[in-house]
Amino acid sequence: MNPASHIPGQAADLGALPVGFQGRIRAIRVDGPGGPLPGPELERRLLELGFTEGAPVEILHQGLFRDPIAVRVAGSTVALRRREARAVIVEPA
């Protein structure tokens, strides 16, 4: 629904970014090599937890081996694994 070609060069996926990153969500893209959830289901769950286009995000913490991450998104804090976070396309603030 948001093909990669629409994403400018500076955008990155949330799963690849370090602690301290601050930015805004550009798109939810679930066509990549995902985790256990089918794409549409992952997309709905991310949306339900607050990962919507335009929402501000910040990576607050990460686990011992970089995973999982704790993300501040539009007023709540959500923990997720980097594999799922790859579906969240962000651009720096």
Partner: peptide
């Protein structure tokens, strides 16, 4: 029945 992805809110 793959493991549910770890996605959960960290409450204040």
């Amino acid at each position: 029945h793959a493991t549910e992805p770890f996605m959960l809110q960290l409450p204040d």
